[in-house]
Design a protein around this nucleic acid. Structure first.
Lengths: 214, 214
DNA sequence: TAGATTGTTAATCGATTAACAATC
DNA sequence: TAGATTGTTAATCGATTAACAATC
């Protein structure tokens, strides 16, 4: 509650900072100035300092910023603290579902996939990262026995809202949605949607622009 | 060249407009006012009118906008005209590669997957949507025989830049990148990257914010 | 101390919103 | 014609950038 409202523009940059700072850490860089970061990320040094100052005074005048300190602060702000683990279920074991399960399993250790569900009996019983796909009808019981924090929706447009409702009933606090639809969600559940086609269409927009400029 | 520079803020909204307008079309809505659209999308009516006017006068005073007319204009601007087909290759036939191939194959008819490549001999020869996965070493020949417009990078961080270089050599005009890295690309090739983890981390940010507010 | 770089205020820029005249 | 809604200008708002004093 003490948190001053951080603007959406800044929030969207936080994961980007994290990504680049982890890159630096991988390269054993321990210290960075706003100018150096600017050269890598492409934001202005001024903006970087402004952003970092929205949450705390993290730097040291005449020196710069400790990479580790920045990363800790970002992880903390983003809800990715070291001890924190989000119990996560994936709904939809088709291609996207499997890809996202794998991706999350390997790359985002803060999100632990504890269940995968599908309505298609052909997929029920198959395995993905040693997790057996269960029938969607078993989700309620499963949720009662395990505390589920996050649901990832990888079903088609037609079934997405029903699945979202089920997830909300099951008590999830966040939904990561890959279906191309606006979901209706209570205001105390977080929602983030990925619209892959938007991204692809921006690519074709850029291609067209380059073409026109010739 | 006659195109007046459209701001990035607007460009990002174009696919969103398209998405909602197609929804309306599916529901057989033929006409919409900026106020009605505002209620559905959540942008202000004023912004919607401003945006639509950046490219042309599409509406009719006292009446509103024809859904079809808007969609045609958006498709055109986004480089998604009806006759237009982008020959597309996917590099990386792992989970993400297969998911994206499927996704693109089914949902974005303007992008025709004509080849899938991987370096892993275990995957070479397997099939995805009736397309046989080829060895990455065959890509140069393949590109010489087929005109390739778009490359989709679904390999890991370590190999992504090398693949991008190969794609550029092969003459692609656009790259859709799923590897978590900044690619170096000549300025006449369009690039759009999808950073799934950024989206997931914004979800956890929102979850944390909701939690703090309690 | 001198040099470097942050923290922070003030100035600028651009994007959004409000308002209303034009017009179907 | 009256009502509705766009097209467009002007006003507002917020985000970015510039500048520099504070300070390590």
């Amino acid at each position: 509650m003490r948190t001053p409202r951080i603007s959406n523009a800044i929030i969207k940059r936080l994961p980007i900072y994290r990504r680049y700072l982890r890159q630096l850490k991988r390269n054993n860089v321990t210290k960075v100035s706003s100018n150096e970061l600017s050269a890598i990320i492409g934001f202005t040094a001024s903006q970087i300092r402004q952003d970092f100052n929205t949450f705390a005074q993290l730097g040291q005048q005449g020196y710069g910023y400790e990479v580790d300190k920045l990363l800790n602060e970002l992880d903390d702000r983003l809800g990715l603290g070291h001890d924190r683990v989000y119990n996560t279920v994936v709904i939809g074991a088709g291609n996207i579902g499997k890809a996202i399960s794998n991706y999350t399993y390997y790359y985002d250790i803060g999100f632990k996939i504890i269940g995968i569900f599908d309505a298609n009996p052909d997929l029920v019983g198959t395995e993905c990262n040693e997790i057996v796909v269960q029938n969607i009808s078993e989700m309620d019981d499963f949720a009662r026995q395990n505390s589920v924090d996050v649901g990832i929706i990888c079903v088609n447009r037609e079934n997405a809202q029903a699945v979202a409702d089920q997830l909300v009933d099951a008590g999830v606090r966040g939904i990561w949605n890959f279906a191309p639809i606006d979901l209706e969600i209570p205001s105390d559940v977080a929602l983030e949607s990925v619209h892959l086609s938007d991204s692809l269409h921006i690519l074709s927009y850029r291609m067209k622009t380059l073409e026109d400029e010739k």
